[in-house]
Design a protein around this nucleic acid. Structure first.
Lengths: 238, 238, 238, 238
DNA sequence: CATGAATGAGACTTCATTCAT
DNA sequence: TATGAATGAAGTCTCATTCAT
């Protein structure tokens, strides 16, 4: 379902079948959670949380209703698991990249946004943001969960990079959270838009090429952040 | 809640329908559709489509459940009516401003975004975007409508301004649609976010001050658009 | 369903239709709660709490599933309403009788037990005790409710009568709660037994005539309580 | 949980089934039915039939769900087996005692009730009565079984003792079955009550001390049975 | 026009039972 | 023989929609 991204961050640490041989049934059992999460993500993305029926998720994963509840005790927990698998893990990886990065901050931001696009923006995982925005009022517990697991860490990640650039004299001093928001918002918005209007023959939504958009956005933002007189560092994008 | 009931205690022996009768009840009757749409907008914005109960809409509009169905044959039709009614007036205004503007393009963009924020971003109308994003997959016919009535005109408006700046030598040449998207997306995103997470005690969402965000965003974008060596024009923001 | 008991305690204070005329629908609405409670009591008695399906109750009352939930928000609340109507009210009446009684304590106990038999013991209401005994462990909230609404008041009522007899020198001094228990337990037990085994052709259960049992029990108990040398006061039973 | 798994780490090259093998596993296998019945009794007593899950019974017996169904083809059959196994042995004992008793009938009754309390009333077996009362309507065939195996013999036992006392001039002539009922009912009722409400902080249920109750009850009953003018015989109770 | 009592399809979730291993 | 993953019928409760008044 997910095409191997050219990213240096391999999603799973090389499965290459361990020594022990499993029976067919055991293999099914081990694959179940992943199959269920994939089915759930697809359906949540398509119809939203409330409108997705548990039985549909099960059917799409090729199991019965009861089996779904064998692995996840409620629809809400299933959704949380989807969020964890698709977002929480990625943000952690982003933190790793940022923590060990040596080059210019502009390049770091460029790389982070490209990673985000390849791992989230152009995958069904992008829909999760839409789902949260739309339904979070009805599930307050999910709001806190999402804030803790996704929004806060992502804000820390991007604010940290901007701070890093300011400290190094690469960027102008600017309000951190607002810049972080301005950095990621257009990308999420584009992904969400494509997810919602992409299926329909809508000129406006399709007039935008995601790759061009990403590069343009980075060009604008990095030039905007840049200290006057220097040359922009984000050229690597092209 | 019901004004002037035909109580038996009325001092006059039943006036047998006055000539006009355009009073109380009649006025209520004419105002009903608007009252219902207002109530529906508020609730759809708050809870989404599926989680909004028809009875709640009726209650909030001060009528009974049955009356709602007198005006709208189903919850779906009510939803469509809400979207249509609230979007039709959203665009014209901006077009007017842009058509007659004389000053620098940076100032024009600054003004347009401020107008958007005051007229849409910080009003319930902002919720409509959220609703559309969330539910458009379930109402394909609304997608075309929304695209024609909102997305396309808005894109034309902002692309036009950017083109104007490029033509005048104020801005660097850049991909028009992508810049237009980068201009408006963070604002819509912020409004939608506040609408969803604002009620919850979520640090990340509340860390951003809308006014600061707006100015920061404009600062970044205009400096990013600006032709090298000139001074940015968007300082008027205060 | 309930035959008018010869008791001086009229169950309802004479309905005799108030002045206002109701339409058919309104009449139905007003009768609904009673119809539902009757149906619920019958089914709870027959199958227990957990095994009684909400839809069955509705059907027996001649309405749909949804209507039941219009009047009682959950099966548990429905059960509580059944208890209140059938037991709580009766105990309150018993307290009234006891509070104003003038004659010998033995006669008071005789009368209370006869009332209990006629109003509970030989009606479906007797099954409620069985239901509670059987299922209370699974519904802790019901346990507290039943204890507060039924067990405690009943214990107070009977202990109070025994105390009254002891104070007046009619009865020997004895442990109050234990005597109260010994007074009411055989009657409840008999009723519960008949409710459970009555339908089956079981000699043992049917060998006992409730009337004889009641009189025998009273005879034994009152003679047992009686201060030595006096003549028993409970002869009125026959 | 599984004893002696045929692990590949076994030092001996698979002993190819020893001669007797009546060890560990074999012993477990033979003990299985009893372990399952014990677990089932405990759970049925605690939660009732419907609320007891098959898997819980299996877990408590230390086996898997599937194994339970190897021994009992359904939950219903398991329930019947529990009832049969626990009741059949309860009655014989009392009959023995009564048959050979030489002393006064009051002492005999005293002794029988004390035996009942120690052997049934204060053991899990008391719960069986509760289960029967609650569920017998759903298992009509058990009604006859229970009646034949328990109710009838118990009635014969106690009626016989009363008859013996009357014949000997110790007791007043009274209806036999009704007296038998009045003798045993309060004790069963108390045991059942404690079993159901004992866990809850219910004053009424806990206000009664079983030992005091037993003595009080015997005191009342024997005095009630006693022929006028004689002194009661049941003092032996201590 | 307006009401609100009534309906019943459908959602989530549980659990007795089966069967491949 | 023993396991436990899988099933699907059934239960409680919700809510869009209808219609007698």
């Amino acid at each position: 379902m997910r095409t191997l991204p050219p990213s240096t961050l391999s999603p799973h640490p090389a499965p290459t079948q361990p020594v022990v041989e499993h029976t067919a049934r055991q293999r099914r059992k081990e694959a179940r959670p992943q199959e269920l999460l994939d089915a759930a993500l697809a359906l949540f993305a398509e119809k939203g949380f409330a409108a997705t029926r548990a039985e549909e998720v099960a059917q799409r994963a090729g199991v019965s209703k009861g089996t779904l509840y064998l692995y996840y005790p409620s629809k809400e927990e299933l959704f949380k698991a989807v969020v964890r698998q698709n977002l929480s893990s990625l943000i952690a990886e982003g933190q790793e990249v940022a923590a060990h990065y040596e080059g210019p901050s502009a390049d770091l931001l460029t790389q982070l946004l490209h990673i985000w696009w390849e791992r989230v923006g152009c995958t069904p995982a992008a829909s999760i943001h839409k789902i949260m925005l739309a339904e979070v009022r009805n599930f307050p517990e999910l709001a806190q969960f999402y804030s803790d697991e996704v929004i806060e860490p992502a804000d820390r990640l991007f604010s940290g990079c901007v701070q890093r650039g300011i400290d190094a004299g690469e960027f102008r001093p600017m309000p951190l959270h607002e810049v972080a928001h301005a950095l990621i918002a257009p990308l999420i918005f584009m992904a969400v838009h494509r997810d919602s209007f992409g299926a329909c023959p809508v000129a406006g939504a399709n007039a935008i090429d995601p790759r061009v958009m990403l590069d343009t956005h980075l060009d604008l933002m990095l030039r905007g952040l840049q200290v006057r007189g220097e040359s922009p560092a984000g050229k690597a994008v092209a």
